[in-house]
Simulated scan of single mutants.
Amino acid sequence: MQPRQGIVEIFSTFVQFDVDQFSGWATDAKLRRSMKVCLESSSTEQSDTFWAIYWYRVWQTESSTVAIAHLSAYLQEVCYWVARKFSLKFPTQLSLADCFLRILFFGSP
């Protein structure tokens, strides 16, 4: 898996699977535009931690679906690695992709 580079990519791309293996990053055009607009209106490019906290606060105060989508994109890599490690240590009937989705949406496999 190639790590994502840059704030826009981190907050606008999602894991793609092919035959239960990582195959690349899919970009959501709406999220990409949203992050570009935010970065253009920001005086300086902040860290991914800054933007994670920013989108979390937007989600908490506005119940924004865009904020949830940005946070979901942000969590893609860590959820993938947890799912991969889990599926290797505890072989079950769940595929890597299924395990990934359960971790992403429910917090556990």
Score class of each variant (00 low, 15 high):
2 Q>S: 13
58 V>S: 03
94 L>N: 11
68 I>Y: 11
10 I>H: 04
58 V>G: 03
12 S>R: 07
25 W>N: 03
14 F>W: 05
21 Q>A: 11
80 Y>L: 14
29 A>Y: 09
2 Q>K: 14
68 I>P: 01
59 W>S: 15
25 W>D: 04
13 T>I: 05
31 L>Y: 01
96 L>A: 07
35 M>K: 02
55 W>A: 06
8 V>R: 06
44 T>Y: 08
6 G>D: 10
80 Y>H: 03
67 A>S: 08
68 I>T: 07
7 I>G: 01
36 K>H: 07
69 A>H: 09
52 A>S: 11
52 A>W: 09
40 E>R: 07
66 V>G: 06
35 M>F: 02
73 A>P: 01
55 W>Q: 03
100 F>M: 08
44 T>V: 14
49 T>S: 05
93 Q>H: 13
70 H>A: 12
97 A>Y: 13
18 D>G: 09
55 W>Y: 12
87 S>A: 14
60 Q>T: 09
2 Q>P: 08
26 A>L: 06
76 Q>G: 04
68 I>K: 12
87 S>I: 07
96 L>P: 05
107 G>Q: 07
53 I>Q: 10
107 G>D: 10
56 Y>C: 08
3 P>W: 01
106 F>Q: 15
55 W>G: 00
80 Y>D: 02
57 R>T: 12
24 G>P: 05
65 T>Y: 10
75 L>R: 08
90 F>E: 14
2 Q>A: 10
43 S>Q: 14
21 Q>L: 09
6 G>Q: 09
94 L>D: 14
49 T>L: 12
37 V>Y: 09
42 S>H: 06
31 L>P: 02
38 C>S: 13
43 S>V: 14
49 T>Y: 10
17 F>D: 08
62 E>N: 07
20 D>T: 08
57 R>A: 07
108 S>M: 12
41 S>D: 09
97 A>S: 15
64 S>V: 04
23 S>W: 00
34 S>T: 12
34 S>A: 12
80 Y>V: 02
83 A>Q: 10
84 R>N: 11
88 L>R: 11
43 S>P: 01
82 V>H: 12
62 E>I: 00
24 G>V: 05
1 M>D: 03
67 A>Y: 02
56 Y>H: 11
6 G>H: 07
39 L>A: 05
14 F>T: 04
4 R>L: 08
26 A>M: 06
62 E>A: 07
95 S>C: 05
76 Q>S: 10
60 Q>D: 08
55 W>E: 05
81 W>M: 09
94 L>T: 03
98 D>G: 04
93 Q>K: 11
77 E>V: 03
32 R>M: 14
95 S>N: 06
102 R>W: 05
9 E>T: 10
1 M>E: 08
104 L>M: 12
16 Q>Y: 01
62 E>T: 01
102 R>S: 12
67 A>W: 04
27 T>I: 13
105 F>E: 13
63 S>F: 02
109 P>K: 09
105 F>S: 10
9 E>D: 08
23 S>E: 09
25 W>E: 04
16 Q>L: 10
8 V>G: 03
63 S>M: 02
90 F>P: 00
95 S>H: 05
15 V>P: 00
65 T>F: 11
62 E>G: 01
39 L>H: 01
22 F>W: 04
86 F>S: 03
26 A>F: 03
25 W>C: 03
23 S>N: 13
74 Y>S: 06
92 T>S: 15
